[in-house]
Structures are given as C-alpha cells and as structure tokens.
Design a protein around this nucleic acid. Structure first.
Lengths: 331, 331
DNA sequence: GGATACATCTCGTATTGTGGCCATTTATGT
DNA sequence: ACATAAATGGCCACAATACGAGATGTATCC
C-alpha cells in the first residue's frame, strides 16, 4: 500500500508538500499540485487516516450506546444522530449494548482509549449503572429527568399525564397500565405522570391493574392475559410503548374484545406502524429524529470545546389521537 | 492524559517493560508487574488505542452499510453482525447511506483509508453502483443472486415463487404484486419468482396488477389506491415487504374490504410485528439475525487472512402461513 | 570454588504515516 | 537590486510495539 513517502518520491516533492497538497491545496503551487495529483493517481495512494487521527489526536468518531437496535424508536434516534454527524464529518460507532452493563462499559472504554471523541447514551440514566467518567464528553438522548449530564428528551411525566388525562376526559375512570421494566426510569416517570393525572381527577391508584412489560410486542400481548384475570377490569389501557400497545390490542382481540368499543388503548413513541395498525393507535409522538439531531449537535459542540449553556433540552411531544380510543361503553 | 511514558517514569521501568506488562504480563516479573500496575492506577493511565491501531496497522473495526436503519429487517441483520463482531473484539461502524451513492462511497473510503478492516453491504448489489474495490474485504448480507463478491442471503427467486405457488394452491388465479423499487435487485428477483410460479400454473403475466412501491408502509397503503382502479381486480396480493403488506391491508380495510375474506395478502421478511398485526401476516421468514452473523463471520475470516471456500452462502427461508391468506371467495 | 551454560528479565532503539514548525529557497513586484 | 510574499523541504513528535541485545541470577559441571 502506497504511503505519502512513495508519493513524495514519485512526484519529486517533499513529504511536507505532499501533505499540504492534500489537506491545504491552496498553499501549494498549481504546478506542484498537479505533480502530486498525478503521483497519487499513479500509485493509487490513499492517506492512512488511522495515522492521521493518531497524529492529530482526533478521531472524528462518536459512539452511540443503544440498548437494542431492533427497536424502531432507537433506530429513528440514531438516524437523526447519523445525519448530523455525517454532515459535520464524524462517524458513528454503534454500540448495541443489549442492556448489558459489561458491554456498555466496553464501549465507554472506546472513548477512554481515545478511539472516539464522545458518546451518546440512549438508555435512560440509572443511578446504579456506571456513570460515564465526568471527563468523558457524553450526551443522553431520549432519556428521563434527573440525568446528571447533558440530555435531550421530552417531559415523560407530563406526556404520560396528558395521555391519561385525555382518557379521563373521554369518560374512563378505570385505566390500566402496561409499563416497561419497573426499574427503568421511563417506566418510573411515566407511571408518575399516570398517578398525577389520576390524583388530579380524584381517582385512587390501584396497582392491581398495573402490569409490568419490557416495551416489546410480546410483553404487551402477555400483559393482557394477566389483566383479564382481574375482577374489576379497566376500560382503558395506557401502554408505555407502541409495541406493547399493539401486542395488547392483538391479545384483546383474541379474547373477543373490540378496540376501542370495549376497551381503549394508547401507545407511546408514535413509531411508523402506529398509524397503520388497525385500529390506528392513539399515542404520544416523540420527536425521535429531532432528539437525535439535537443530541448530536450538542455532543459535537462539546467535542469542539464549547460548553453548552443549557444542560437539559426538553423537546415538545404531541398527543396524536387516532382510532384506538373512544368513550367507554355505557354499563 | 497520561501516556505510557508517564507510566514508565512513575514506575521507574522502561517503556518497553510497561508495554509488555500490559499486553504480555507473563513476560514480566511479578515485582515489575506490580510496580507498573501501581503506576497505572495512580496516573489513571489508559493506553491510547488509536496509536496502537496505527502502530499495528489493524483497526479492529468493520463498517456496515445500511440503506435505512429505521427498517427492522436491517436492524436485525445488524444485531447479528454486532453480536459476532463484539465477541471477536471488533467494533461496528454504522453507515446509514440513505440509498445515496455519495454517502456510500464516503463509508467505503473508511476502509480504503484504513480506518476499518472491511465492510458489510446490506444493499443488494447493483451493477451501476460503485463496486467496492476488489482489494477491499467486503461481504454482502441479505442481498441477491449475482453479487460479484462474497454474499450471504436467501434464494429470493425461489422464496417468491413459493409464496405465489402457495396462493395458487389456495385457488387464487389473479395475484397482484406490490413490488419494491423496480431497479432494486430484490424487486427484480422476487418478480422473477412470481413470474415463474405463474408460468408453471399456466397463468399469463399481466403488468396491470403490478404496482411499484419502495418497501415502506406508506407505499403499500398507496399502492392499493392504484390497484382499486383496475377493472379485473386481483383476489390476492403478493407484497415484497411486511411493511408494504401492512400498509396495503390498512388501505384495503379503509376501502371496506376484508383480509383474507375478500382478498389475501402476503408479506416478506417476517418482522416482529407481522405476527401481531390483525390479521397476522402470511409471510416469508428471512433468518435475518443468522444472515448477519454468517456475514460477520465470513468477513472476519477474510480479515484474518483466510479465504472462504464458498463465495455464496444461501440460507434457508421459511414460508409462515398465518391469517392474512385464505381461499378466494366463490364468485 | 570457579567457570560455564542457560533462563529470566529488562532495556534501548527502530519503526509506523502523518502533520506542524521553522528555516530556507524561489518567485513577484517595485 | 531589494523587500516581500509564496512555496517548499527537513526534521521531529505522536504513542505504542517488536526485536535483538544486554544484564542479572541460578544451576550444573569439573
């Protein structure tokens, strides 16, 4: 493989000139530039950027820690991150952590060992998990309140509260929940929003109709099996992800219940398929791509030496009312 | 940031010994090892792997070119790739190409500039597009027949043919198609399978009931608007992706048609939601994760100097019959 | 006991490809 | 001819590893 030395020899110019011809062509005479280009062409020379990075102590790479890539919400976040990163000349190194702390710290060490300039964490912050070293440039995207470093997100508590208030406004008074894993901050925050909404309506909280899922289709489907054994059944279901809402509706249909006629169901995230499901999901639209973009911009700012004034960026969400909700049946 | 030099000074040992203490501790006396470890601890030293990569001319990174990350099928492929790569100590650099040739060649240049050891292409090979330089280690995953480099995939022609034959066996004789973009090899191969199946049943091909989509939910929805204007309407619909099948079913339902009673619909890929849609989709299951795993194994083999004997790995697919298909209505 | 052989441990130096610094040479304009 | 600007080249640094050589310690033999 040709090196800059070979180009130098071939063109009869010094290494320094060749280097300049590549990175700062305006500092080199037209004549030399042409000679260099000819030599590069002839030798099929490609600068070794691995060496360049090392020399300049910059990697132009950011790491994105994804709990599970096969989740459309994350995929959209990544899409936003990728877009901004690419435009600014950065590469995105993907870290599919599978919710494993070990794998996560392996990826964090990529930044520590200077193979990457910073990282974006897509998992909500968890006090138990290893906090990225404060010297590491990190941004949390799509997480929750209380993240002890820079973050871009929506107000989960308020959004959850808004969905539940919407169900209340339709006339529902017994509203079940399919939550995410109970130690996940998303679950905690959204459950808090749920409780707030109930409280403001003077309805007592009943954990009998709160079922724990894991954000997946299957867990939503499974959750309704539990709920169907409850004596006083809910007339509406607040699901903490669209996937679980879809799984739940499927399960309800198999039990012969109609959505929304017999029971209303709401989702969370507004992934693409939410609008194409039957019934189309009432859900909270998270501006996933925008969150990703903003997080990437923030991180690149930090990498380039600026200190963002604001630590927490709260982006607007939107309640999308579609077909999966209606007033409860008269008893 | 501490370097090996600082550790050397702190421990009173040479740089060489420190280096060995880290990478080959068994070659160093216990006493020295301890001194080195103490110094590392004290200085919070982390080896600069960027330098290491440069020195060893190995990056331990592979690039994955994804046409669109927000597509579950690709996400699953990536998941398989990530898994194998991580186990073998490789990182995955994500290249979301958005079907842009420019962006794609930018990512290919990561390999050329030795920032990555090889690449996995998830887009079906296209003779017009820039073929990765033959010196570049590349594997195609989930592509089509006729890929001029190593590839791992299913037999698209046969799979499509099998789906259509299944529809024929149910009694359908007028089978519409919602294809992907017409210049996409997946579309071409699967359409060929479709034609083969028709031919073997002695049914004439009619391009009036072939509608071009782009694999997305929306395009499936949109396609049925076109099909509804055809005089002799199909009784079954072969869709080249699950997303399009879901979009199509949604569109059909809005037109007051029932699936499968009025019209059967099949998908392709078997993404998670296929089983949770209503009706659950009859579809072709591609072993996405396995394809990703095999592709990664193949690429790592090549990177590590071996030459795989076989150029094309054809993995088994599976026809999954669910609720979206049935015999046509008696006329 | 002393010499020799051998193993263990350690070190210095060269090497990797590139860009920055600074000095030097060449070109340009007055 | 001279001052100034533009273009160029030489050398070194970057952080790590590989290699071979040197130093030290231990066992074995006569």
């Amino acid at each position: 493989m040709a090196t800059i030395r070979d180009v130098s020899r071939e063109s009869g110019l010094s290494i320094a000139t060749v280097s300049r011809a590549i990175s700062n062509p305006e500092m080199v005479s037209k004549h030399s530039l042409q000679r260099v280009n000819e030599a590069i062409e002839k030798l099929q020379y490609k600068p070794n950027l691995s060496s360049q990075k090392f020399r300049l102590q910059r990697t132009n790479t950011i790491v994105v820690l994804v709990p599970n890539i096969a989740n459309l919400f994350f995929a959209q976040l990544i899409s936003g991150i990728e877009d901004v990163a690419a435009r600014r000349g950065y590469n995105v190194l993907l870290g599919d952590t599978r919710d494993s702390v070990t794998r996560e710290s392996e990826f964090i060490s990529l930044v520590e060992t200077r193979q990457a300039d910073g990282l974006i964490q897509l998992r909500p912050h968890d006090d138990d998990a290893p906090l990225p070293d404060p010297t590491i440039k990190a941004v949390n995207a799509g997480g929750c309140a209380g993240t002890p470093y820079h973050s871009v997100r929506i107000d989960n508590i308020e959004a959850a509260s808004k969905v539940v208030k919407y169900l209340l406004s339709l006339g529902h008074t017994r509203i079940g929940v399919i939550s995410g894993l109970s130690n996940n901050r998303h679950s905690i925050d959204r459950l808090q929003g749920y409780k707030q909404a109930l409280e403001s309506a003077g309805i007592a909280y009943d954990d009998e109709i709160i079922v724990e899922g894991d954000f997946s289709l299957w867990s939503g489907f499974n959750a309704v099996q539990h709920l169907s054994q409850v004596a006083n059944k809910p007339t509406a279901l607040f699901c903490m992800s669209d996937d679980m809402a879809i799984g739940a509706i499927k399960g309800l249909k198999e039990k012969g219940l109609q959505v929304p006629e017999d029971i209303s169901v709401t989702g969370f995230d507004d992934i693409d398929v939410a609008n194409y499901y039957d019934p189309a999901l009432t859900t909270v639209r998270q501006p996933a791509v925008k969150i990703g973009e903003k997080a990437a911009e923030l991180l690149l700012q930090m990498i380039e030496g600026e200190t963002p004034k604001v630590q927490e960026y709260i982006l607007p969400y939107e309640l999308i009312s579609r077909e999966s909700t209606s007033a409860p049946k008269r008893v």
